Simulated scan of single mutants.
Amino acid sequence: MDLPSGVSADLQEVLIDTVGSETWIRFRFIAPKIARDSDSAPDFAMLEPDFSHLCVNLAVPYLQNYELEPDKVVISMSDRAVKFGLSDPDATQYFEQFRVEKGDCIWEGF
């Protein structure tokens, strides 16, 4: 998927988990061009609109299609595949959190 920043991202996986008493759905994307060791890597400010774009254009239709109503939606981008819950100090990773109301994504910073 091409994003507003000009970066391309591929969906790695969708995970549903429970955090406390809430249901969170995580949409995890791989975007190799965000690697911090690249001379042309965009900074987070350039990528920020991509998170809302992914939420509105991919997460919301997914939730509607599967009739899911999570408390939180987390969109993450990584320059490489990293197993969920594990750390990779060489990986560049960014995360944003949203709640979905009436088909719209409302940002809720961590």
Results as ranks from 00 to 15, higher is better:
12 Q>D: 06
83 K>N: 02
48 E>W: 00
47 L>Y: 00
5 S>H: 08
109 G>R: 13
66 Y>N: 04
52 S>W: 12
50 D>N: 09
82 V>P: 00
44 F>W: 08
24 W>D: 07
49 P>R: 13
21 S>H: 15
62 Y>K: 04
100 V>K: 08
45 A>Q: 15
17 D>Y: 14
25 I>T: 11
83 K>P: 00
92 T>L: 03
107 W>M: 15
67 E>G: 09
49 P>A: 01
32 P>N: 09
52 S>F: 14
13 E>L: 11
45 A>F: 09
18 T>K: 13
25 I>M: 06
44 F>A: 01
36 R>C: 08
102 K>F: 14
24 W>G: 11
96 E>W: 04
70 P>W: 12
53 H>L: 05
68 L>E: 02
57 N>Y: 14
73 V>E: 07
63 L>T: 10
110 F>N: 14
14 V>E: 05
54 L>A: 13
106 I>M: 09
72 K>M: 04
69 E>K: 14
4 P>L: 07
31 A>W: 00
92 T>M: 01
86 L>I: 09
30 I>T: 12
4 P>S: 11
66 Y>H: 13
7 V>E: 06
105 C>Q: 07
82 V>R: 00
53 H>Y: 13
38 S>L: 13
11 L>R: 03
106 I>T: 10
91 A>H: 03
64 Q>S: 08
17 D>H: 11
50 D>I: 00
55 C>V: 08
23 T>H: 14
86 L>F: 13
26 R>S: 05
17 D>N: 10
68 L>H: 02
27 F>G: 02
81 A>W: 02
64 Q>R: 12
10 D>H: 04
66 Y>S: 08
58 L>D: 07
68 L>Y: 05
85 G>Y: 12
108 E>L: 14
34 I>P: 06
46 M>S: 12
2 D>H: 03
21 S>W: 11
93 Q>Y: 06
44 F>M: 02
33 K>G: 03
91 A>N: 04
107 W>P: 02
14 V>A: 13
47 L>P: 04
92 T>A: 02
73 V>R: 01
61 P>S: 06
98 F>P: 03
8 S>F: 04
35 A>F: 02
45 A>V: 07
72 K>D: 08
102 K>T: 08
76 S>A: 10
50 D>W: 00
19 V>D: 07
109 G>L: 14
27 F>C: 09
28 R>V: 15
43 D>F: 05
85 G>S: 12
25 I>N: 05
13 E>R: 15
55 C>A: 13
71 D>Y: 10
28 R>I: 13
89 P>S: 15
97 Q>F: 10
81 A>C: 06
33 K>Y: 09
57 N>G: 08
100 V>H: 03
64 Q>G: 04
87 S>T: 15
25 I>A: 11
40 S>T: 11
6 G>Y: 02
99 R>L: 04
23 T>W: 13
77 M>E: 01
69 E>R: 12
3 L>T: 02
95 F>D: 09
11 L>Q: 06
41 A>D: 03
32 P>L: 09
42 P>R: 07
16 I>D: 09
99 R>N: 08
24 W>P: 05
83 K>D: 01
98 F>H: 03
98 F>N: 05
86 L>P: 00
7 V>P: 00
43 D>I: 11
5 S>Q: 01
68 L>Q: 08
22 E>K: 14
26 R>E: 06
95 F>S: 12
39 D>P: 08
30 I>D: 00
55 C>Y: 03
45 A>C: 07
8 S>T: 07
75 I>V: 09
56 V>I: 10
